Simulated scan of single mutants.
Amino acid sequence: MNTQEILDFIQSRRSMGRLLAPAPNAEQLKQAVSVALTAPDHKQLNPFRFVVLENQALDNLGLALHQATLDKGDTDETALQKAKMLPKRAPMIIACVTDYKNHPKVPEFEQLLSAGAGVQNLLLALQAQGFASVWRSGDLMNSQAVKQFFNLTDNNQVVGFIYVGMAGAELPPRKAVNTDDFLTFY
Score class of each variant (00 low, 15 high):
T69D: 11
L61M: 03
D74N: 12
K105I: 01
V106M: 10
E77K: 03
C96V: 14
G62D: 07
E108T: 04
L70H: 02
Y100F: 07
R89M: 07
M92H: 08
A95D: 02
Q81S: 11
L112M: 12
Q81T: 11
A83I: 05
K101V: 05
P104I: 05
D99H: 11
A68M: 06
T78E: 01
Q81D: 07
K84N: 10
D99K: 11
G116F: 15
T78W: 00
L65F: 15
T69W: 03
P91K: 04
T78I: 01
A90K: 09
P107W: 03
L113A: 13
K101C: 01
L113Y: 15
P107R: 05
L80H: 01
T75A: 15
G62M: 01
C96Y: 11
L58V: 02
I93G: 05
K88W: 00
K72E: 11
E110S: 07
S114L: 10
Q81G: 09
V97Y: 14
H103L: 03
A117F: 09
E77S: 03
K82P: 00
A68C: 11
P107F: 02
G116V: 13
H66S: 14
G116A: 15
G116W: 15
P91C: 06
G118I: 09
E77Q: 08
K84S: 09
N60C: 04
S114C: 12
E77C: 00
I93Q: 07
L58F: 13
Q111N: 03
L70F: 00
K72Y: 03
L113M: 15
L58N: 10
D74R: 01
K88F: 00
G116I: 12
D99P: 04
P104E: 06
G118L: 07
A90Q: 06
L113W: 13
D74Y: 03
A90D: 11
L65H: 15
P91S: 08
Q67C: 15
K82T: 05
D74W: 10
M85C: 05
L65Q: 14
Q67N: 14
L113V: 14
T98P: 03
L63M: 14
V97I: 13
G118T: 08
K72F: 03
P91G: 08
T98D: 03
D76Q: 08
C96T: 15
A115R: 06
K84C: 03
E110M: 10
K84H: 08
E110F: 09
D76A: 06
D76R: 09
V97K: 06
P107K: 04
